[in-house]
């Protein structure tokens, strides 16, 4: 197998590649923030009666909330801000498919590249 000689990359090409990676990093991390896709899916289950009892807090808990500077009114949105774990099957299937597809592509494409590496490393001797 002839030894592979990579092409020389121009300085402009190197700068362009760096720019591609930086842009990709920002898009991947910033876009979910911008589109509101990042962060927890929580919502407040509002209560009419804002008392420690209604909020499910016993006297010990209530005394600690008060020590931390909270009243039943100010603690209400913290205590009642809850996750609602409803499994959205289509989203779960999409997520599983994206993850599996990603890893399958990763291992298969890596293996193709790896065979070239091993061939050049060991078969040329």
């Amino acid at each position: 197998m002839p030894r592979y000689t990579p092409p020389e990359q121009s300085k402009a090409g190197q700068v362009f590649d760096i720019a591609v990676v930086v842009v990709a990093i920002f898009v991947a991390l910033w876009l979910p923030l911008k589109m509101g896709l990042a962060g927890a899916a929580k919502s407040i289950d509002a209560l009419d009666a804002k008392t420690w009892e209604a909020l499910g807090q016993n006297p010990t808990m209530a005394s600690i909330w008060e020590k931390l500077g909270y009243t039943p009114e100010t603690a209400h949105d913290i205590i009642q801000n809850r996750f609602h774990y409803i499994i959205d099957w289509p989203t779960l299937i999409i997520m599983a498919a994206v993850l599996i597809g990603y890893f399958v592509f990763l291992f298969r494409a890596s293996d193709r590249e790896y065979r070239d590496v091993i061939k050049e490393k060991f078969d040329d001797k």
Partner: peptide, 21 residues
């Protein structure tokens, strides 16, 4: 997925596209 599923999908798509590149 329970709470942060969209973020996971977005990140994985990024890794997939940069892998293709």
């Amino acid at each position: 997925f329970l709470g942060f599923g969209s973020q996971l999908i977005a990140m994985t798509i990024f890794y997939f596209l940069i892998s293709v590149w």
